[in-house]
Design a protein around this nucleic acid. Structure first.
Lengths: 199, 199
DNA sequence: CATTCAAAACGAACTAGTTCGTTCGGTTCG
DNA sequence: CGAACCGAACGAACTAGTTCGTTTTGAATG
């Protein structure tokens, strides 16, 4: 499954990534991680103190990749939403991992959580700048708008009706249509002065 | 925890509701459910065939309550979003339960899923009607819009940054502000012909 | 009102299986 | 040689589900 030429530590982390995303912290099996990593449990526990620590390491890694992948640039908020959507589609595991963490932990992410908070604050700052530049309606609370954009971009991943039976077929045409809807929605959200004076 | 005067079967179901919402299917403990229900395991297994069946029963119950609680009426889509938001705030357990089910099952909800699909289809139908009445921009694919509205209404529950440490303080003022943002967002989403001809 | 009796419920122990984390002898490789 | 690694096994803890003897309930009956 994951017998890359990489060193065992990396192979284990990579296998853990898939395992935790699929089954969560409680459902993940250490034996399965070791097996899929083509490594021994002895090695796994040589590198990671215990199951939960491995879980948190995986979570932090995912969040770092996410935070460096989907960034608000050029004050283009719709494009940002598109990037969020793309990341969610391409790395569905990351979204699942965040959900697992939210559900299974009592808030002791500490290291991983800081990554998320720092990322969030930075994007909020950029939204505020976009507002000053007139690209985003100034009446929005930027923190609220940020949350709403996340909600819109990940709407399809949390859709209760869409129970893609473990690994969606991911019809490219449907995905493109959804992406367009997300971007269109965000454009409507940020449109300046929808009622107020015409510039 | 839940020693209502009700019969054991109901007490068990109620205790299971809290247990599964908090810990999920894998994390829930049968012993804990029985204890909190002030019932014996012997009774639990007399009423429910096994753990997963109990989980699915709880899920279906939650979905039914949800489906009868948040309904699109009077072609008022923003009010519908408000109702969704209110339900999510008041019954955070239901949202958690849906997330658990999405993450922990391979799609074998069958009974519970039909409730959700039926509900979803009905609301989509009403959105389509609202479009015909000019209350919602006709250029929206109603299914897409439905998903987006769900995403907006539940944005705060899926917010990765907001790690309300198990049972949020739920500052009423902040909740009201979030509710207003959700409704405002949906109003912007559905506003007819933002660019097209002026009727 | 008192008695009876079967169903419902309790509680505690038990079975059988699973899983984390550890240990250890053997093997490869630098 | 020694460090890294594997594979296999093991112990301890935990947990779903079962069993069984006892107690409570509640309705019918005399």
């Amino acid at each position: 499954m994951a017998r890359d030429g990489a060193d065992p530590q990396t192979r284990i982390l990579e296998a853990a990534r898939a395992e935790f995303a699929a089954y969560g912290l409680a459902g993940a099996r250490i034996d399965r991680i070791a097996k899929n990593a083509a490594a021994s449990k002895e090695r796994l526990y040589a590198y990671y103190s215990d199951k939960q620590q491995l879980f948190l390491d995986v979570l932090e890694l995912n969040l770092r990749e996410f935070a460096s992948d989907a960034v608000l640039t050029d004050h283009d908020v719709p494009a940002f939403a598109g990037a969020l959507f793309d990341h969610a589609v391409l790395h569905g595991d990351h979204l699942r991992m965040i959900d697992w963490a939210r559900l299974e932990t009592d808030g002791t992410w500490l290291p991983a959580l800081e990554v998320m908070v720092g990322y969030r604050d930075e994007q909020v700052r950029r939204i505020r700048l976009a507002q000053q530049l007139g690209r985003v309606d100034a009446s929005w609370d930027p923190v609220h708008l940020m949350t709403l954009i996340f909600g819109v971009a990940s709407a399809w991943m949390h859709e209760p009706g869409a129970v893609a039976p473990r690994g969606a077929p991911a019809d490219p045409e449907a995905v493109a249509a959804r992406r367009a809807s997300v971007i269109g929605a965000v454009e409507r959200l940020i449109a300046p002065s929808p009622i107020g004076p015409i510039n």
